[in-house]
Design a protein around this nucleic acid. Structure first.
Lengths: 226, 226
DNA sequence: CGCTATATTTAGTCATGCCTAATACTCCTA
DNA sequence: TAGGAGTATTAGGCATGACTAAATATAGCG
């Protein structure tokens, strides 16, 4: 795959194609990428996914063997990382420059990520001081499209102690809104008091909360000194 | 056309449909809107225009009589003004907030105008202090979608004297780049020394220039005291 | 007033990206 | 190891919005 043909492809990729590639990347972080999982993420029927995967495979963007799942080729990975960089830079910019709350940015970024130029990307990255994380703590691919290493581990798996919140993986508007209200945003420090199968109990400077396991699942933390 | 059906339609309009409506509005400012003119503006064949006009007419967005040209209905005008407001706010924002030059903003705005939310529109308008003109001096439709009245007249039709530049109608990148280089941007004051069929001669504080008629055509000015 | 040049519309095609229904494959369990 | 549950793919359609080629309307001129 030469530079030349890369650029030809990039110029012609549709919004739908870019979205599929991005979702393949995101899904592959947590396990094998099935047709069904992709269909759910894209809000589309499985048959439609099969069709798109065949097209993306013919473009050299995914490795696809029927009934065997999909993976990104290196060309496809480049595209996916580029879109992910757009998405997360836009989220960060909307928050810092335009006063969006972190539960509002996802939907806006989801549309804009496909329609900004490289110039726009560079200027907002510059304005932001080339951030490595978006407001949710998600890593932003670098300009050369490498992902910062993952730090932290799930709050769910932690023992009682002192922690700093690093990342919130949920993009549910209401879940984010709730966490923001509690002050549970990246950088926040708290004490984990108790964990059980159904929930975790924790204490921030502002109060004590019982957090359902479903929420704790998507929260990544690192241990800190008391 | 009730409010309710307006909103239903708005939700379903495609990017192409929005673009057609916008171009009908822009073309109608300078004369009757022909299929051919529309085809040129959209970069599309006349046959395609006919097809789209029939669809827009069936949606109640344009008045279309075959062979007789098109006009916007009031519903269509609302949509066109909304898109135009997006376009010109985005151009202004890119210039003032992100340091774009005025010859770079058009292409970026052309894509983004279809993909921003009302929330985004409101926030950049707020940030900008609710401007009435974009960097080219083009009027920005108000939030309630009325256009500020046109001021000034074409430099081409002026007698020698002192003027202030109000608006540059060209969106040619190189023409804009040249004008910017000369300091001929909205607000600039200059003396018109001489006009002829082929060109106008003028003097700014920085120098004297002979401007081809083609450029002078698209420049609107108002007279000022010396 | 008719004829021709130009503008416009119709008819038929194609790619995209989705859908449903029917069929095929996989893998687990009995 | 055969059957079934569940997952995936094929087959066939539809809407969108472009295209070409062919037909038709308009307008300007002699």
């Amino acid at each position: 795959m030469t530079k030349y043909s890369d650029e030809l492809q990039r110029a012609h990729l549709s919004e739908a194609q870019e979205d599929y590639l991005k979702q393949v990347l995101l899904l592959s972080e947590t396990g094998p990428v099935t047709t069904q999982a992709l269909a759910e993420r894209m809000g589309v029927r499985p048959a439609s996914v099969t069709g798109m995967l065949k097209k993306l495979a013919s473009l050299g963007l995914v490795d696809y063997a029927p009934y065997r799942g999909v993976g990104l080729t290196s060309a496809g990975l480049q595209v996916a990382l580029e879109i992910l960089r757009h998405h997360r830079l836009i989220e960060t910019y909307l928050t810092k420059a335009l006063g969006y709350d972190w539960d509002e940015v996802h939907a806006e970024a989801e549309r804009l990520e496909h329609h900004i130029s490289e110039a726009f990307e560079e200027r907002i990255a510059e304005w932001l001081g080339h951030p490595e994380r978006d407001p949710h703590g998600d890593p932003i691919p670098s300009p050369s499209l490498t992902l910062p290493p993952d730090a932290g581990r799930s709050l769910r798996a932690c023992q009682p102690g002192y922690y700093r919140l690093l990342r919130v993986r949920s993009q549910d508007k209401d879940a984010l809104s709730l966490l923001a209200r509690l002050g549970l945003v990246p950088g926040a420090r708290f004490e984990l008091l108790e964990t059980s199968a159904a929930a975790v109990r924790l204490r921030l400077s502002e109060g004590r909360y019982l957090l359902p396991a479903a929420l704790a699942d998507g929260i990544d933390v690192e241990e800190v000194s008391p």
